[in-house]
Amino acid sequence: MSLDKDQVQHIAMLARLRLADDEFAETVDKLSRIVDFVDQLSQAATDDVVPMAHPLNASQRLRADRVTETDRRDDIQENAPSVEGGLYLVPKVIE
C-alpha cells in the first residue's frame, strides 16, 4: 500500500469527506492503486519542460466595469437548504 490509513484520513479531512468504515477500507486500497499508477510519471524526463497549465496559448480577456446583475435572491435561495431573513444558515461558527 502506498498510502496508509492515517494519510487517507488526513486527505479525507482536507477534502471534508466523511467515509463510512467499509468505504474507508476500500478507499485506502483503491487510492493506493491510483497513486501507484500515476507514480509512473516520475520516469518521464521533464528537465526544462515548462509546465502546461492550459491547452491554448491565450491571455485573459477583460470585461468592462459595469453592473449587469440584478437582485435575484429569493429566486436563487429556493435551492438553499436553510435560510433565514435572506441569510444562509450554518451551525454557529466559533473563532
Binding site: 498510502l3 494519510q7 487517507v8 486527505i11 479525507a12 482536507l14 477534502a15 469527506l17 467515509l19 468505504e23 476500500e26 478507499t27 483503491k30 487510492l31 491510483i34 497513486v35 500515476v38
Partner: peptide, 12 residues
C-alpha cells in the same frame, strides 16, 4: 464512491 476517490486523489 468514484467522485470521492477522485476528489481525494486530487487533494493528495
Amino acid at each position: 464512491a468514484e467522485v470521492k476517490r477522485r476528489i481525494m486523489t486530487g487533494t493528495y
